[in-house]
Design a protein around this nucleic acid. Sequence first.
DNA 1: CGTAACGTGACG
DNA 2: CGTCACGTTACG
Length: 297
Amino acid sequence: MSTAVDIAGPSSSDQAHSSAKIPNAPLRPSLKRSNHPYSLSHYISTPSQAMDVKGLIQPSPAQQRAAQPAHTKPRRTPSWPDMWESPSGLHLAHAAELLMRAGLLALTPATTEQANLGAQSSQPVKREAIEARGGKGDGEGSGSGPEEEEEDSSGCGTDFQPFLGAWFPFSPALFPLAGFQMGGGHWRSAAMGTEGIEGLVAEGYSPGSLGAGSASRRKRKRCGECVPCRRQTNCDQCSSCRNRKRGHQICKYRKCEELKRKPGGPGFESRVSGFDLRGSDFTLGLSQERSNGVLDG
DNA sequence: CGTAACGTGACG
DNA sequence: CGTCACGTTACG
């Protein structure tokens, strides 16, 4: 791939004309206000450092420094595989903790501290995730302690979101690990037994739209984080652009990856793999982990 | 109310 | 499957 994310579009006469109509920030403020490490503008205005999708997803060194207390030894930049490489399995533990906090995973009190943590903060975490995504809750983060903030930005949390295209703070690989089952496009937790609201949330429905009955017709919202969503400008060349007046469609190159998928469509699993995780060394990292014996009980 | 854009169905 | 067209929803 040519380093740069296809933000410039098919050929890029864009910026000039289309920006007249298209606001600089196509996303709702609520999206822009998400807890993500970078603001939207950051994504678009960092031409100097060749950035690819992975580059966008993993926290920048600067951000890590911010997220890490100074005394931590200078970890080399955690690439995706790195997250799974941790010999101590800390990242996995972390992910499990996130699961617990979300109330999705009931672990034995082996990790009591974490269990306690989960018990007291499962609710805030859910709301946090939701609000970060476009909930109108204005979520300025008053609900989340600094600790959580730090953890989320340290690599295990929201960083997975872009790949999942959903509101998941953890990797798909954790599903099997944590005893999750896939099915029917939703996932369910062994602990819960039934589809949680998060299952639907993962389908791209905003919580607000889950309310009574009319959910079927509800509009889903752009994830705001996939490459197309990050694009600022219309290409003015695609059918959607050319046909804007009557088509009422967003530029094809700006069409959210998540919205392209049918809500009830193919299984979540296939969607995840369809998102080109394979090329991301992610699975490789996992198998490495296995061969390292880290994952084997 | 105007605009942007999602959902959906029809068409080729 | 891609495109077009329209209804509808969401938001400023």
